[in-house]
Design a protein around this nucleic acid. Structure first.
Lengths: 202, 202
DNA sequence: TGCTACATACGTACCGGTCAGTAACATTGT
DNA sequence: ACAATGTTACTGACCGGTACGTATGTAGCA
């Protein structure tokens, strides 16, 4: 058994993953790839190597586990977003294009499955569902930031441009998983650039 | 009992809706509003006022019923699309804007649920699933037509513009059900017009 | 007209499996 | 001791799907 992570070289190093963490990791993977409704709790605990009571000791319900998965997804999303922002300080246009260039690249990977937030909202149309609430909050914050960036670019109608960029982003997420390789999402950055250009002059 | 459709005034008029038709009507409504995975066959037959064996005499499986629902959806979609096209003969730009204006309006209705095709593809990521196949075919045809229209507009890079329009459309479908009233989908036509403008000059 | 013969359409009751979730108790490591 | 986890077994509801019997309409024929 080479390279086992049970080595425990010293204190607080590889601190023996708790059951809740293993569950959340597996849930994240399966929920994202297959969909939340498509995955049962039995499969999650099986793949995580834990038992069902362990799941329900850490999470009050499957719906709340899904919400936790999305909160984790939310954190990772903003990390990726801010990475593009930080790469071009004071240049919102370059920030957007950098972000969309990476999104476009990711959509061209095999088995790309779009945005976990967006997918969850499609799976759970019911208002107030725990998973949907997380998703809606994420999207509203994204909209707010895009509009602010559009304003910082000096767009004459910043809200319209910000919303247009959001439409392109969501379209890329969906088209990425619909068309696979060679799909329309590959040119999302180019289209965003054209849209920005048209929104600035005048 | 006023206005009962059992009148049968003459031959071949209101020909007593068959079980299969009632099932498909109910399935269309429930699948679209709640999602395909969220609705069981029991609820469908209950709401349709028929029994389960009747469903399985007309449809070989739930998956095939979902595919039938999408084929019906596909027909209605192209009716709406061609309506906008026919309203502006020889003017692809006006055709697109007319279509997107109506899409934008529909996204602002309460309980808007986006595109049944798109939603089904999100619900069934597995390649080859009967419902997904119908959805993918619809989207590929839409892409083909949008690219052709972009070429007819005289865009320098017609494929990029066609794909950009597709991204905006898919973004509108998703944002419509994510944000509800006052969401970004309301300005999809305006953004499409800006994108077209930017893609034509030069 | 009266009868059978057959096909179509439908209903009752049921199948095994899976769903999310839980009760009660044993085991482990610190 | 204590807290976290595992073990086993279970619940009631629901899942998609089916075996099998029954009603109804109609064609053929006397």
């Amino acid at each position: 058994m080479p390279s086992d992570n049970k080595i425990e070289v010293s204190l607080s190093e590889v601190p023996a993953p708790k059951a809740a963490d293993k569950i959340l990791d597996v849930a994240r993977d399966l929920f994202y790839r297959e969909g939340i409704r498509a995955i049962g709790v039995d499969e999650i605990v099986r793949r995580a190597g834990v038992t069902k009571p362990s799941l329900y000791r850490s999470f009050p319900s499957k719906d709340e586990l899904a919400a936790s998965y999305l909160r984790k997804y939310d954190l990772e999303f903003w990390e990726r977003f801010d990475e593009a922002v930080d790469a071009h300080p004071g240049n919102p246009r370059a920030q957007i294009i950098a972000f969309l260039t990476r999104v476009g690249k990711r959509t061209q990977k095999r088995d790309y499955r779009g945005c976990g937030m967006t997918n969850a909202a499609v799976e759970y149309p019911e208002h107030g569902h725990p998973a949907r609430v997380v998703s809606e909050n994420n999207k509203q914050e994204l909209r707010r930031r895009l509009r602010a960036m559009a304003a910082a670019m000096g767009a004459s109608d910043a809200d319209t441009l910000g919303d247009g960029l959001l439409l392109l982003i969501e379209g890329a997420y969906i088209s990425g998983q619909l068309f696979g390789l060679g799909g329309p999402a590959a040119v999302v950055a180019r289209n965003a650039d054209l849209l920005i250009e048209a929104s600035l002059k005048k």
